[in-house]
């Protein structure tokens, strides 16, 4: 059974938590074959209660030292627009749906999410379009994200400094 992971980063994004745990959303997730939803809720005032039924499991936590394991175990990542999470998710080759916090519209972090969307590496939506996006988006059309090339930086530095 597939698993979806939702992460809001170091602050809180209660609208996203509410949108993703709304009954209609859970139903759509189930119909898409997801049997497990894991929420990282950050500083949210009220966190939803975890539950486990035969067909569906909801796990909730606030913070963890590293999200690497949760990202690794996920078949779909739904995330805030934080650059660190976006890059880490794409590097692990996981399908990513970024949910833009409209209250932070001028945040420079959006620059990166928008560009990665233009380049076909992720999809993005807002809380109000999350349900529609989950129904209509075909994650298999996303392009793989090639790793960065620090060796090009090293070669450049060696050259300008005069190391051979």
């Amino acid at each position: 059974m597939k698993s979806a992971f939702v992460t809001v980063g170091t602050t809180s994004f209660e609208e996203l938590i509410a949108a993703v745990t709304a009954p209609e959303t859970l139903q759509v997730l189930r119909s898409l074959g997801y049997g497990r939803l894991v929420l990282q809720v950050g500083r949210a005032a009220a966190a939803p209660a975890p539950f486990r039924t035969a067909a569906f499991t909801l796990d909730v936590f606030r913070f963890k030292e590293s999200l690497a394991e949760d990202l690794e175990n996920a078949d779909l990542v739904i995330s805030h627009a934080g650059a660190g999470t976006c890059l880490e998710t794409l590097e692990k080759g996981k399908p990513l749906l970024v949910v833009v916090n409209e209250k932070l519209m001028n945040n420079h972090q959006l620059e990166l999410a928008r560009q990665l969307y233009r380049d076909g590496h992720l999809f993005y939506c807002t809380c109000s379009t999350l349900l529609e996006s989950l129904k209509s988006i075909d994650m298999s059309t996303l392009k793989p994200f090639p790793p960065g090339q620090p060796e090009k930086f090293a070669a450049f530095l060696d050259r300008v400094i005069g190391f051979e």
Partner: peptide, 16 residues
């Protein structure tokens, strides 16, 4: 001193 500045990957259109 040689100063090398690498702008963060997060900066797509504007500098920090």
């Amino acid at each position: 001193v040689i100063i090398v500045y690498v702008e963060s990957i997060c900066r797509v259109e504007t500098l920090s």
